[in-house]
């Protein structure tokens, strides 16, 4: 039995889920197939509707 959680995917959803779990005191293992985390969001310039930078 384990309290740890596996998160598959290091994009924005995976990152957010991992952060929330960690804040709760749970240990997270994240698996990401690309050399960095960030996902598609890392490729975007700005996001709508605020035009904030994506990365």
């Amino acid at each position: 039995m384990s309290q740890d959680v596996l998160v598959i995917g290091g994009g924005i959803a995976g990152i957010q889920a991992s952060l929330d779990l960690a804040e709760m005191g749970l240990k997270v293992k994240m698996v990401e197939r690309l050399p960095s985390i960030g996902g598609v969001m890392a490729q975007l310039d700005k996001t709508f509707p605020t035009n904030d930078c994506a990365i």
Partner: peptide, 13 residues
């Protein structure tokens, strides 16, 4: 190899 209690699949598109 490791053990976990839950899995979240956040693999995007």
């Amino acid at each position: 190899e490791f053990e976990v209690g839950a899995i979240i699949s956040a693999v995007g598109y």
